[in-house]
């Protein structure tokens, strides 16, 4: 086993990309618990399309890193059977749009087994989904299906936005006894940052203030956290201090930090790639309105993808929320 080599490699490389941090997190989870299995399309020798499972089959064997047929429903169904026999399967869905064939299994079995068995069964399954656009790919490689799963009682949904969270959240998700949909910001896989492999992880289902500010609150998750942080940096030139909050957990939502922030700033902009219609932003807006009505100086505004199928690659820059659209929304909030 390569445990020692990995440990020294990790210590040497505290700066990691999100992709590598996920890879290291998976490796550590597999070392910690022999019941952890990885299964998916091309996850073995290739290491997955995005190389998130790179080297794991070589080091842990074909029994623990299982290349499957193109069969998402079969992959998730098989994972349920394995989980019922004591394993902790981690399913890789190659691209966001490929999860739909597995939707039936996820919604009808993964989400409901615990409930309908009167809590006798727990399904510690992680379903990893690289999601969102920005890589010049086609529509079913660029989608943001997180709201479907967040809408489904019985599932937990999280999304990491930086390497340190990637490293820890994947391990926390695998260690959880509940099924977790793990949304990975694929366009950010190559972004690097500090990873503290010896530190204490932040709680999995907690939102986190990434940048304190006093004038307006910007909430984002996954790939849009980078956009929100860039917008906050740019807003300083306009004399505005934006508070940026990374939701991290989409179900359950942890909106305590958002309420606290909005009660101070009075303004909220929610950013996500998914279309606005019945998206996470709608839920955040509704709850903030319910809890912070008298603190709000302006309506909660959403900066999102549009209510159309994900566009062709040459048009995606027009579709994806960017720094300008976030700053425009902040301006509109102040113009109220």
């Amino acid at each position: 086993m390569t445990g020692q080599a990995v440990t020294s490699a990790e210590k040497a490389a505290t700066t990691l990309s999100i992709g590598k941090a996920l890879n290291n997190g998976l490796r550590r989870a597999m070392e910690d618990d022999p019941k952890v299995l990885i299964m998916g399309e091309d996850v073995g020798k290739l290491g997955g399309v995005f190389r998130i499972t790179d080297g794991l089959q070589k080091d842990f064997g074909e029994d623990r890193v299982i290349d499957t047929p193109l069969a998402e429903s079969g992959i998730v169904g098989t994972a349920i059977g394995l989980a019922l026999r004591g394993y902790r399967p981690v399913c890789e869905i190659q691209f966001d749009g490929f999860v739909y064939p597995a939707y039936d299994q996820i919604v009808s079995q993964v989400a409901k087994f615990h409930y309908r068995s009167r809590g006798q069964v727990r399904l510690p399954i992680v379903i990893r989904i690289p999601f969102g656009g920005g890589i010049g790919a086609v529509e079913h490689h660029s989608e943001s299906p997180e709201a479907y799963f967040s809408h489904t009682a019985g599932l937990k949904v999280v999304s990491c936005a930086n390497p340190n969270d990637a490293y820890w959240m994947i391990q926390q998700a695998i260690a959880s006894d509940d099924p977790i949909i793990f949304m990975e910001p694929k366009r950010r896989y190559w972004e690097k940052g500090q990873v503290d492999t010896d530190g204490e992880p932040y709680p999995l289902h907690s939102a986190r203030v990434l940048r304190p500010g006093t004038d307006a609150t910007v909430v984002a998750y996954g790939p849009m956290v980078r956009v929100a942080l860039d917008a906050a940096a740019a807003a300083v030139e306009d004399g505005r201090e934006l508070e940026v909050i990374d939701l991290r957990s989409l179900s359950p939502l942890d909106l305590g930090p958002v309420y606290d922030s909005v009660r101070r700033t009075g303004r909220l902009v929610v950013v996500h790639e998914a279309p606005s219609n019945l998206g996470l932003g709608s839920e955040v807006a509704a709850r903030v309105t319910e809890k912070c009505f008298y603190s709000l100086e302006a309506p909660v505004l959403r900066v999102t993808g549009f209510n159309v199928p994900y566009p062709a690659a040459r048009l995606e820059e027009e579709y994806l929320p960017d720094l300008d659209r976030v700053l425009d929304a902040v301006d509109r909030s102040f113009g109220w």
Binding site: G77, S108, Q109
Partner: peptide, 23 residues
């Protein structure tokens, strides 16, 4: 023993269990 009314899904779940038994 477990049942599900959702057509066909039990076969995939059984496949996962069978993988465990085989291993």
């Amino acid at each position: 023993f477990v049942t599900t009314g959702v057509q066909g899904q039990g076969v995939a779940v059984a496949t996962g269990m069978a993988l465990h038994y085989q291993r």
